[in-house]
Design a protein around this nucleic acid. Structure first.
Length: 135
DNA sequence: GCCAACGTTGGC
DNA sequence: GCCAACGTTGGC
Protein backbone atom coordinates (compact mmCIF):
# COMPACT_ATOMS: atom_id res chain seq x y z
CA UNK A 1 0.00 0.00 0.00
CA UNK A 2 1.35 3.38 -1.03
CA UNK A 3 0.19 6.86 -0.10
CA UNK A 4 -0.06 9.91 -2.34
CA UNK A 5 -1.28 13.48 -2.50
CA UNK A 6 -2.92 15.15 -5.48
CA UNK A 7 -3.73 18.80 -5.92
CA UNK A 8 -6.68 20.38 -7.64
CA UNK A 9 -7.86 23.94 -7.83
CA UNK A 10 -11.42 23.85 -6.51
CA UNK A 11 -12.57 26.27 -9.22
CA UNK A 12 -11.49 23.67 -11.76
CA UNK A 13 -12.45 20.44 -10.02
CA UNK A 14 -13.51 20.47 -6.39
CA UNK A 15 -13.94 17.70 -3.85
CA UNK A 16 -17.68 18.46 -3.90
CA UNK A 17 -17.83 17.73 -7.61
CA UNK A 18 -15.68 14.66 -7.08
CA UNK A 19 -18.21 13.33 -4.54
CA UNK A 20 -21.09 14.04 -6.91
CA UNK A 21 -19.30 12.21 -9.71
CA UNK A 22 -18.48 9.25 -7.46
CA UNK A 23 -15.38 8.56 -9.52
CA UNK A 24 -13.13 10.54 -11.81
CA UNK A 25 -10.38 10.21 -14.35
CA UNK A 26 -7.37 12.23 -13.12
CA UNK A 27 -6.45 13.77 -16.46
CA UNK A 28 -4.41 16.72 -17.66
CA UNK A 29 -1.09 15.94 -15.96
CA UNK A 30 1.70 17.23 -18.22
CA UNK A 31 4.70 17.10 -15.94
CA UNK A 32 7.10 14.17 -16.06
CA UNK A 33 7.60 13.86 -12.34
CA UNK A 34 3.86 13.94 -11.68
CA UNK A 35 3.33 11.45 -14.52
CA UNK A 36 5.87 9.08 -13.01
CA UNK A 37 4.05 9.28 -9.71
CA UNK A 38 0.73 8.47 -11.41
CA UNK A 39 2.36 5.41 -12.91
CA UNK A 40 3.45 4.29 -9.46
CA UNK A 41 -0.12 4.19 -8.15
CA UNK A 42 -1.68 0.80 -7.49
CA UNK A 43 -5.30 -0.19 -7.02
CA UNK A 44 -6.32 0.47 -3.43
CA UNK A 45 -3.62 3.07 -2.74
CA UNK A 46 -4.92 6.01 -0.73
CA UNK A 47 -4.60 9.58 -1.95
CA UNK A 48 -4.98 12.83 -0.04
CA UNK A 49 -6.98 15.43 -1.94
CA UNK A 50 -5.63 18.98 -1.63
CA UNK A 51 -7.37 22.16 -2.74
CA UNK A 52 -4.76 24.56 -4.11
CA UNK A 53 -5.09 28.34 -4.56
CA UNK A 54 -8.46 28.54 -2.85
CA UNK A 55 -8.84 26.69 0.40
CA UNK A 56 -5.24 25.57 0.60
CA UNK A 57 -6.25 22.56 2.63
CA UNK A 58 -6.47 18.80 2.43
CA UNK A 59 -10.17 18.02 2.24
CA UNK A 60 -10.42 14.25 2.07
CA UNK A 61 -9.05 10.88 1.06
CA UNK A 62 -9.49 9.23 -2.32
CA UNK A 63 -8.70 5.71 -3.44
CA UNK A 64 -7.06 4.49 -6.66
CA UNK A 65 -9.67 2.42 -8.52
CA UNK A 66 -7.87 2.04 -11.85
CA UNK A 67 -4.13 2.06 -12.48
CA UNK A 68 -2.38 4.15 -15.12
CA UNK A 69 -3.65 4.14 -18.71
CA UNK A 70 -3.21 6.63 -21.57
CA UNK A 71 -4.71 10.07 -21.00
CA UNK A 72 -7.66 10.44 -23.41
CA UNK A 73 -7.15 14.22 -23.39
CA UNK A 74 -3.53 13.95 -24.60
CA UNK A 75 -2.36 13.30 -28.12
CA UNK A 76 0.67 11.42 -26.84
CA UNK A 77 0.08 8.07 -25.07
CA UNK A 78 3.12 8.79 -22.88
CA UNK A 79 0.80 10.89 -20.71
CA UNK A 80 -1.34 8.82 -18.39
CA UNK A 81 -4.28 9.06 -16.01
CA UNK A 82 -5.57 7.00 -13.11
CA UNK A 83 -9.14 6.72 -11.87
CA UNK A 84 -9.90 7.89 -8.35
CA UNK A 85 -12.99 7.50 -6.15
CA UNK A 86 -13.82 9.36 -2.93
CA UNK A 87 -12.98 7.33 0.15
CA UNK A 88 -13.71 9.69 3.05
CA UNK A 89 -14.29 13.37 3.54
CA UNK A 90 -12.46 15.11 6.36
CA UNK A 91 -14.64 16.41 9.16
CA UNK A 92 -12.06 19.19 9.58
CA UNK A 93 -9.96 20.04 6.50
CA UNK A 94 -6.24 20.25 7.24
CA UNK A 95 -4.84 23.63 6.26
CA UNK A 96 -1.46 24.38 4.75
CA UNK A 97 -0.67 26.35 7.93
CA UNK A 98 -1.32 23.30 10.08
CA UNK A 99 0.94 21.26 7.82
CA UNK A 100 3.70 23.86 8.02
CA UNK A 101 3.47 23.94 11.78
CA UNK A 102 3.49 20.19 12.36
CA UNK A 103 6.82 18.65 13.34
CA UNK A 104 6.20 15.38 11.47
CA UNK A 105 5.34 17.17 8.22
CA UNK A 106 8.41 19.36 7.74
CA UNK A 107 9.69 17.28 4.82
CA UNK A 108 6.41 16.67 3.02
CA UNK A 109 6.53 17.11 -0.76
CA UNK A 110 3.77 19.70 -0.58
CA UNK A 111 6.15 22.08 1.20
CA UNK A 112 9.34 21.11 -0.60
CA UNK A 113 8.01 21.24 -4.14
CA UNK A 114 5.03 23.51 -4.18
CA UNK A 115 4.35 23.21 -7.89
CA UNK A 116 4.25 19.42 -8.15
CA UNK A 117 0.65 18.22 -8.51
CA UNK A 118 1.03 14.49 -7.82
CA UNK A 119 3.44 13.32 -5.13
CA UNK A 120 4.18 10.39 -2.84
CA UNK A 121 3.68 10.61 0.92
CA UNK A 122 5.40 8.76 3.72
CA UNK A 123 2.97 6.55 5.68
CA UNK A 124 3.53 8.65 8.79
CA UNK A 125 2.74 11.83 6.87
CA UNK A 126 -0.48 10.30 5.60
CA UNK A 127 -1.41 9.08 9.08
CA UNK A 128 -0.77 12.44 10.74
CA UNK A 129 -2.87 14.36 8.22
CA UNK A 130 -5.76 11.88 8.35
CA UNK A 131 -5.58 12.05 12.16
CA UNK A 132 -5.91 15.83 12.04
CA UNK A 133 -8.65 15.73 9.39
CA UNK A 134 -10.81 13.16 11.11
CA UNK A 135 -10.06 14.34 14.63
C1' DG B 1 -1.08 41.91 -7.89
C1' DC B 2 3.40 40.30 -6.81
C1' DC B 3 6.93 37.12 -6.53
C1' DA B 4 9.53 32.65 -5.93
C1' DA B 5 10.20 28.21 -7.84
C1' DC B 6 10.75 25.61 -11.59
C1' DG B 7 9.93 23.66 -16.28
C1' DT B 8 10.47 24.56 -21.26
C1' DT B 9 12.30 26.70 -25.29
C1' DG B 10 15.61 28.43 -28.28
C1' DG B 11 19.97 30.87 -29.47
C1' DC B 12 24.70 30.23 -29.35
C1' DG C 1 25.80 21.68 -23.33
C1' DC C 2 24.95 26.25 -21.35
C1' DC C 3 22.08 29.89 -20.22
C1' DA C 4 18.75 33.67 -20.87
C1' DA C 5 13.99 34.42 -21.69
C1' DC C 6 9.61 33.20 -20.90
C1' DG C 7 5.40 30.70 -19.17
C1' DT C 8 2.95 28.40 -15.38
C1' DT C 9 1.90 27.23 -10.69
C1' DG C 10 0.73 28.51 -6.33
C1' DG C 11 1.44 31.02 -1.89
C1' DC C 12 1.05 35.42 0.13
Amino acid sequence: MNYWLVKSEPVKYSWEQFEKDGRTCWDGVRNFQARNNLQGMRNGDLVLYYHSNEGKEVVGVAKVVREAYPDPTAGDPAWVVVDLAPESRFTRPVTLTQIKNHATLQHIGLLRQSRLSVMPLRPEEFDVIVGLGMG
